[in-house]
Design a protein around this nucleic acid. Structure first.
Lengths: 169, 169
DNA sequence: AGAATTTACTAGGACATCCAACTAGTTTTA
DNA sequence: TAAAACTAGTTGGATGTCCTAGTAAATTCT
């Protein structure tokens, strides 16, 4: 599936790493395995999502921003609000929105009342693209088409414990 | 915890996004929530791990590579083997090892029997650093110190379903 | 043996993310 | 109201990841 980096493996490399860790009597092997699992899951899912979005000229981050804007009442959001909702750094928002802008999917406009703020407004083309992309994401179930809803729920719930402990909610 | 991008949120942004999704009758909201949760969990854990490794001049990817080499019998591994084990692209390995090399933690040497291959060999300094870093990781439990082992196990298991379905093992 | 194919790694480029520092506009304070 | 403090975004820089393409060496095939 991913060329050039050793496809099919057959054995669980994370479980093997954990055994190595335990064998040496090292601490936190359980946490290490969980952290590594999260990293790997992220890598797998992100790759699939980006692959599914490529035909629309989008990446996951750009897609997320575009959806967020499209769901707002005015079809426009201040940059800061976007970073807040997507939980990313302001500079990432600038980067993402600039690209959506140059692709003609949003426009950057001055905020009517706050001279410091910039509004990212979705364009007609942006709405078309995001609708098509959303349909595509539904079709591939965000890269999780090979696991069922019960498992997906479980992933959300279990990681919710982590997120909650980290202050996410 | 992460400055500049809207700290403390109070409400679960992912759950809220899922409700929005459902309200519009869009498909795959469960998968969307799971994918987003994975992304966010990855962001949280990676940030903590990197913060914990910073004092040693390491990042998670460089740390992973260094550990892998340190655990090998010879204290040396071909570049390709590293990418295979860590499941990353060959160019990422080159990047990672080059940095470890310039930091004096590994050396790149010609493979004794295969003229194409390059061996990354850990140095004495590399062993010292990786040992210290591993102790630090144990102390912060790879960024998961605020969840218990049972939850960590559950994360590994649940994501294991995903990884297995994706052909990881 | 010699040609064709495969394998190992690197160079250059596209993206995404974060941090530090800077500009400009807004709000608070004295 | 003028100065101080804060907020919104951007620029420049460092990392990491992947892809495409290209070089060199090993293996396979005829």
């Amino acid at each position: 599936m991913v060329p050039g980096m050793g496809d099919h493996v057959d054995k669980d490399l994370i479980a093997e790493a954990k055994r190595n860790w335990d064998r040496r009597g090292w601490d936190a092997s359980t946490a290490m395995a969980a952290a590594t699992s999260i990293t790997r899951a992220h890598q797998i899912v992100l790759a699939r999502i980006n692959q599914g979005l490529a035909p629309f000229g989008l990446t996951f981050s750009r897609y997320e921003a575009l959806v967020l804007i499209s769901l707002s009442r005015q079809g426009a959001l201040p940059m800061g609000k976007i970073g807040e909702r997507l939980q990313v750094h302001p500079t990432s928002v600038t980067n993402t929105i600039n690209r959506l802008d140059s692709d003609g999917l949003v426009t950057k406009e001055a905020h009517p009342t706050d001279g410091r703020a910039t509004l990212a407004t979705i364009t007609t083309k942006g709405r078309e693209v995001v609708d098509d992309a959303t349909a595509a994401m539904g079709a591939i179930r965000f890269g999780l088409s090979d696991i069922d809803d019960a498992t997906a729920h479980q992933i959300t719930d279990t990681l919710g414990v982590l997120r909650s402990a980290a202050g996410d909610f």
